[in-house]
Design a protein around this nucleic acid. Sequence first.
DNA 1: ACAAAAGTGTTGTATATACACCCATGC
DNA 2: GCATGGGTGTATATACAACACTTTTGT
Lengths: 258, 258
Amino acid sequence: MRRDADEREFLAAYDPHAYAPVAVTVDVVAMTIRAREPLVLLVRRGASPQKGRWALPGGFVRAEDGPRGPADPDLPDAALRVLAEKTALPTTLHLEQLGTYGARGRDPRMRVFSVAYMLLAPDLPDPEQGRDTAEAAWVPWRDLGHGGTARYEPAFDHARIIADAVERARAKLEYTSLATAFLPPVFTITDLREVYEAVWDRSLHAANFHRKILAAPGFVRDTGELADRGGSGGGRRPRLYRAGGTAALHPPLLRSAP
Amino acid sequence: MRRDADEREFLAAYDPHAYAPVAVTVDVVAMTIRAREPLVLLVRRGASPQKGRWALPGGFVRAEDGPRGPADPDLPDAALRVLAEKTALPTTLHLEQLGTYGARGRDPRMRVFSVAYMLLAPDLPDPEQGRDTAEAAWVPWRDLGHGGTARYEPAFDHARIIADAVERARAKLEYTSLATAFLPPVFTITDLREVYEAVWDRSLHAANFHRKILAAPGFVRDTGELADRGGSGGGRRPRLYRAGGTAALHPPLLRSAP
DNA sequence: ACAAAAGTGTTGTATATACACCCATGC
DNA sequence: GCATGGGTGTATATACAACACTTTTGT
């Protein structure tokens, strides 16, 4: 009995419905920071199952051109499309694939494979500005799942997906320049430090952080300009920087220090 | 026009064939090290398209129970199943999701989403011992793709997937204890160093490496035993260690040193 | 005896931390 | 002036790379 993968693929090409139908969706963990608080975008489900629960913005990948619109050329396009239906997209953003979740039974209707994306962006507008009228909200990470007073209990396995995204973001801040994705094009070293402090939920030594950032080649580029004014209660005008384009940090910034 | 994701999901539940059919496959980048040479498992395609080209072992995810066998409960189960059809599986292995590739046109027959897995294992047997009779081979990383005398030119976008896996493995050796996944349960520090040297393709200072490993908490656990004998040409009998169970390394081992 | 491999000691250099301090600005 | 925040200097502790050296084994 020689019935290997290639033969099966061949059969499938001529009779696609010979297999149990599967669905592929994208779910987006959109993250931003507002007033030193890291947030994730959730939408309230308007249909069963899990109607009324909060969930990640997502939707089916458009495999081929059809009445609903053209096909998504690739998975990142699908991620941006479904997110654009919920909120206005920023001009600068970081989009990265998190992983695919496909356990049997994670959706009660059929076998659904969800490709999760993580999107990082500077302070996004409130979701009411999006094209879709479904209820949506920016939710603080700390209000999610992990016991206690969980105001938002995500649907399906979305709590798990968000937890994976949070851990990915925390880890990548150590050894990449990902933190700049949470900031506008021009920022100060203090802005950058506040990103780290918000994501890691710990305070960092400001003076040493400053030097460490400038010592890491390619992390930031000096614009030569100063901010219009210092802090609200006085203070020197800080220098302004841009992201330097480096992906990997050498040396890394470790979050394990005392 | 209110036609949001939830409604679409709802429709799909009642008429799955209303959507263009899509396929979900798993492809496994199985890696091992033999005689200090990192290898990846490839199989020769027996059917068109790309008949005769080398490709990653893979196959369709079984969404539901059917005549070919029971459904795969989750994606990792599918990855292990398709790999078991090509080679004998080791008792200890590390399996990790790499990413999902779903660009339109990557398979000429239909829209295929491939969930790629990376599998790391100690020196695996030759694939002839697998249940499947298709031609398969362990191929050195250096013989793949990147220009020159490419004896093996992978099918579809598999060269890209392998390159992503190699880079993932190289990076994770820096800040996790992943290297032990290439070794049997009991090993010496020199064995561990040779894993790093093979994967990074550079030599490391033996004495300093030794101390660094022992200084990283939880990387290895001393068994208290010594190897039966030293090297072939003489030498002290090395201590034997087991993997220590730690995932993250503090401090990391950086590959950027001179 | 000799070579080979494991493992330890030592030392100069680099890096990180903590703390003190100066600079510039708002009120 | 004085509080606030940006930024620099510097001593101390720590970590790392390089090299020398000792220990233990096979031939």
